[in-house]
Design a protein around this nucleic acid. Structure first.
Lengths: 140, 140
DNA sequence: CTGCATGCAAACCGTTTGCATCCCC
DNA sequence: GGGGATGCAAACGGTTTGCATGCAG
């Protein structure tokens, strides 16, 4: 029985619901927002459980823990590398459909003595709701 | 020189020392680290004063508040746009000498309905100190 | 005299943790 | 029965805030 780097995770009801609810939304909810979504189906779930499991799932690559600005951590059911944009007014975070630039890591390697592991681009801007001009209906 | 969009800020001794100390270091200290530096010269300064003034100076463009990952806010006396790299082990943040890509904002504009204001690239990696020592424990 | 700035401490918010209990293997 | 998972609440770390005092204009 050889263990891999990937540890087993029992699929408890709590974990299942967290995963499902996170997968339902296109937003990038904070732990507390996930807690609220999950609590509708599991009213007795604890906040600590949500935090513990989000952390655990992120370690196991099931979800993505976003390292974006702002005070709170955010989570994403889409695990492939993509960039984000954050509204400076309401703090909302959206995906931005921009091609990932893989070679940027290599370029940056020449400019630092860090061993570069990854990169992330975060745009800042104002979302349509906050700009007040809703000329056409946003998908969010 | 008269009433601009830039509001007046009295240059109190506390503010002067905060600015000076922040300008001395090439790192990107957290508010608490600034507090420690400043306290050596102004032992009775309050943490709240440091927080209030860092925030105020950032609003006035005197310094930069870094919107990087991690839990704590960091501050930078260099206000022109540049990218950063963060050590995933010890949390340290350094500048990375990489040419800023201004046209990326324009490209991104076509992919979102946000009004894009700026962007920031944050690399993640392992700094030289940490790549040597395995069992390094961070205080950040 | 008036108002902004400060020091201090308490409040606050997001997150983590200790612990008793529960449940699956 | 044993080890992980849970609910709960207390603790924690970083940041903000209320308030009385201080000081510059």
């Amino acid at each position: 029985m050889d263990m891999k780097n990937h540890q087993h995770m029992r699929l408890t009801p709590q974990r299942q619901v967290i995963l499902e609810e996170l997968g339902k939304v296109k937003s990038h909810p904070t732990a507390n927002e996930v807690y609220d979504m999950v609590r509708k189906r599991l009213p007795r779930i604890g906040l600590g459980t949500v935090y513990r499991n989000l952390e655990l799932m992120a370690e196991n690559g099931l979800i993505l823990k976003l390292e974006v600005g702002g005070t709170q951590k955010r989570f994403d059911a889409t695990t492939d590398l993509h960039y984000h944009i954050r509204c400076t007014t309401c703090g909302k975070v959206d995906d931005i459909k921009l091609e990932v630039i893989p070679q940027i890591n290599k370029v940056a390697s020449d400019s630092t003595d860090y061993e570069i592991l990854s990169h992330h681009i975060e745009f800042s801007g104002i979302c349509q709701e906050c700009s007040g001009s809703e000329t056409y209906t946003s998908t969010n």
